[in-house]
């Protein structure tokens, strides 16, 4: 466990808790893409199928349970409890356009042609693009609430920190995970435009607005 990976996981936990906090306290899912949260649910379920079969550590298992349960809770809040506040008209990204390619790629590129490894690869590829509906929604609505932009910053930072972790592990342990690294780079690059807006606007106390 490198420091970067721990920082990345904590940033990930922060993002998940920030989102739950925002929806719960404002009793509203306004500005949140339900499709992105649905895909995150798929990401965790397909990645952590080994939750009951392979025990890595208490930390590892705890985080898996946290990620799965928090993402299910988030989807429940958006599509059920605060359904009336879900802004479906602006959440129009076609999920099949990312789910199908991720599945096809997982069938081609995986570490073993087994259900578990194909499911794991699918999860890694899907996570890389799962944020797209949310980023599209921000551009469509033209702005994001401050806490939503902090959520996105924490979420984007998590995999960016993982990249540092992978560099660290390659340098010290001499091996790397090509599938995770490739997808992790794509995932972080997709936040590029958002990071720019975040640092030039939100940090200065202004609202995150996507300039028309």
């Amino acid at each position: 466990m490198t420091l970067f990976r721990l920082a990345g996981d904590l940033s990930h936990v922060l993002a998940i808790l920030l989102l739950l906090y925002k929806i719960w306290t404002t009793k509203s899912a306004a500005g949140i893409s339900g499709k992105t949260q649905l895909m995150f649910c798929m990401v965790y379920v397909t990645r952590y199928l080994d939750l009951f079969t392979s025990f890595i550590s208490v930390y590892n298992s705890t985080m898996k349970v946290l990620f799965i349960s928090a993402s299910v809770a988030t989807v429940y809040l958006i599509y059920f409890k605060f359904k009336a506040t879900y802004d479906g008209n602006h959440d129009t990204f076609r999920m099949e356009f990312v789910i199908v390619p991720a599945l096809i790629l997982a069938l081609i590129w995986n570490y073993a042609f087994t259900f578990f490894e194909i499911s794991w690869a699918f999860s890694i590829f899907l996570e890389a693009v799962a944020i797209l509906p949310q980023l599209f929604m921000v551009t469509k609505t033209g702005e994001a609430e401050n806490i939503t932009s902090h959520y996105l910053f924490a979420l984007g930072s998590y995999r960016a920190l993982y990249i540092l972790n992978w560099i660290d592990r390659y340098y010290f342990e001499g091996h790397w995970d090509p599938i995770a690294v490739t997808a992790g780079i794509v995932q972080t690059v997709l936040y590029g435009d958002f990071f720019y807006l975040y640092f030039t606007r939100v940090i200065k106390g202004r609202k995150l607005q996507v300039l028309p």
Binding site: D9, D50, I56, N60, M63, Y111, A112, E117, D177
Partner: peptide, 10 residues
Amino acid sequence: FSGHGGHDEL
């Protein structure tokens, strides 16, 4: 990570 020993990262 290793295809067989499972993936040790989240």
